[in-house]
């Protein structure tokens, strides 16, 4: 089965089983997203992809397309909501971009630029989670993790290693490593794994690969994330 939906006045075809996000991307329409990545099971955690479907807020990445749906993706209200959501992600972790090697290539930052986010609005949490630098090639700065679950999905679905998981509840939620010591060095991860490269932020980093691209040539220096996301290019420009 297939049919059409309407996004911001444009008629968009879909195939049965596709979400609103799938149909939008196929039609070249950008819906802001962070936890979604084509080819991976949708997760629905970041809420950046919030759109209005027949008058209600829904996550485009998990909501199935259905014939005749009227979807609003562009409105002042949605822009405000998405900006607030992004600000929440910034204050919940320690996003000191001036000293982050992902800066310029970071999807969280790229989305914030796209949304013209100028401040963080909320009081800061100043998270205090320890860095895991135990592995010879890969490190994790847990204070930059946005719990998008992409590394978890990549390790399970692509690498078949099941290295990561999200544990804990509420604000104490954290990314954990499935190894006896809980550290990366004792896990099965290797530097060639999909999970080592998929992180949209500066949480999982490849050692000795920082600051390779001059300022001005980094992914989001010149092109907006909307453009990059629809081009199907790899978005983590640092490796």
């Amino acid at each position: 089965m297939s049919g059409t939906i309407n996004i911001d006045g444009k008629t968009v075809p879909y195939r049965d089983g596709q979400t609103i996000m799938d149909a939008a991307i196929a039609a070249g329409i950008y819906i802001p997203h962070l936890c979604h990545k084509p080819g991976f099971t949708p997760h629905g955690s970041c809420k950046l992809c919030t759109v209005k479907v027949n008058g209600r807020n829904c996550s485009a990445c998990t909501f199935p397309a259905a014939d005749g749906q009227v979807v609003i993706n562009t409105s002042d209200e949605l822009l405000q909501d998405r900006r607030r959501i992004t600000q929440m992600l910034f204050v919940e972790g320690n996003h000191f971009c001036p000293s982050c090697e992902k800066s310029g290539n970071c999807q969280l930052q790229g989305v914030a630029y796209h949304l013209n986010m100028l401040d963080n609005h909320f009081p800061h949490f100043y998270a205090d989670r320890r860095v895991d630098a135990s592995h010879p090639d890969i490190m994790i700065d847990h204070n930059r993790c946005i719990f998008c679950n992409l590394c978890v999905r990549a390790s399970r679905e692509k690498d078949r290693k099941n290295v990561f998981d999200i544990a804990g509840r509420g604000i104490n939620k954290r990314l954990i490593v499935n190894s006896v010591s809980g550290t990366l060095k004792d896990s099965a991860i290797s530097v060639d794994d999909c999970a080592a490269h998929i992180c949209p932020t500066g949480a999982i980093l490849i050692k000795r690969s920082a600051y390779r691209l001059p300022i001005g040539q980094r992914t989001y220096d010149q092109r907006q994330i909307s453009d990059v996301a629809l081009s199907g290019e790899v978005e983590h420009g640092q490796d």
Binding site: H95, F96, P98, D119, Y126, D128
Partner: peptide
């Protein structure tokens, strides 16, 4: 007007908050 990263989110000096 809050000018710069430090005025906006504490900036790199706020790394001492750890």
């Amino acid at each position: 007007v809050a000018v710069g990263a430090c005025a906006i989110n504490g900036g790199l000096p706020a790394m001492r908050n750890q």
